[in-house]
């Protein structure tokens, strides 16, 4: 790979209790590129993604083997500060999960927990983040109303704004556009295009065209195994593995 590696995944196995769902994953995620994870439902994409910011730690009875090296440091080493890790590796979830707070407070949350008091700075960041997420026009006159009153798609863009506001180095997105209409989806894709100038992005998607449009690299998962990982154009035009081809062509009809 000709790009600098941001994250190196080495021999990763993952278990929910006795149930192994990831098998020996080896993958290098390039810096400031978009990497798409594709594969059929239940193949372990979300699980893999949630390993990258140790979000799976919250689930009792999980077991992780192998290494995930972020900037030269194994994030599963003992003594790693998970809180620091997560402010470095942000996440947008499959289902929108705004806090039961105002729209403004949702986006400002990342600063509040860091104890940042500078009001002008926060105002400015909230505004730019909402702009980036393509939500500013719709909500600028009701920033203080509850985020739960937004539509599902708006909630999802709010969650994206919330995640980019704190400027993580890596942004994990789990099907961020699955609840959005084509226009909002296009906004998100443009946003991803903008974001990759500064951030490393890993995105799970079920939408092949979307992967083809936004991703520089694509990883194909099948039943907990990484089948193929390559530049997106290679995956979509000349896959080396038969499974990859079947999946992609199956999807395209």
């Amino acid at each position: 790979m000709e790009h600098k590696k941001k994250i190196q995944v080495k021999d990763l196995d993952f278990f929910y209790g006795e149930n192994q769902v990831l098998y020996n994953i080896n993958l290098d995620i390039p810096e400031k590129k978009v990497t798409a994870l594709i594969g059929p439902s239940g193949c372990g994409k979300s699980t893999f993604l949630r390993c990258l910011n140790r979000m799976n730690d919250l689930i009792p009875g999980i077991k992780v083997r192998g290494k995930i090296i972020l900037d030269g440091q194994d994030i599963y080493d003992t003594g790693v500060d998970v809180v620091k890790l997560r402010s470095k590796v942000g996440m947008v979830f499959q289902k929108p999960n705004p806090f039961p707070k105002s729209i403004f407070e949702n986006v400002a949350y990342g600063f509040r927990i860091k104890g940042i008091k500078d009001k002008d700075f926060i105002d400015e960041r909230v505004k730019t983040s909402l702009r980036m997420a393509g939500l500013w026009e719709e909500v600028h006159d009701r920033l203080s109303s509850s985020a739960l009153g937004l539509s599902g798609g708006q909630q999802q863009r709010l969650c994206i704004a919330r995640a980019v506001a704190v400027e993580p180095e890596v942004l994990l997105m789990d099907e961020p556009a699955s609840a959005l209409d084509p226009i909002a989806t296009k906004k998100i894709e443009e946003l991803i295009y903008e974001l990759k100038k500064e951030f490393t992005i890993v995105i799970v998607t079920h939408n092949m065209q979307q992967a083809a449009r936004v991703a520089d690299y694509t990883a194909f998962f099948l039943m907990g195994k990484l089948i193929e990982f390559d530049k997106t154009e290679n995956i979509f035009t000349s896959p080396r593995k038969k499974e990859t081809e079947d999946y992609i062509t199956g999807r395209f009809g």
Partner: peptide, 27 residues
């Protein structure tokens, strides 16, 4: 309180205590 809310807070780099005070209790 939905697990998603808690995860949303933790994913932004909040500590467990901050998550309890700022998200879980208000919710």
């Amino acid at each position: 309180v939905p697990r998603e809310l808690k995860e949303g807070s933790l994913a932004l780099g909040a500590t467990h205590l901050q998550t309890i005070i700022r998200v879980i209790l208000p919710a």
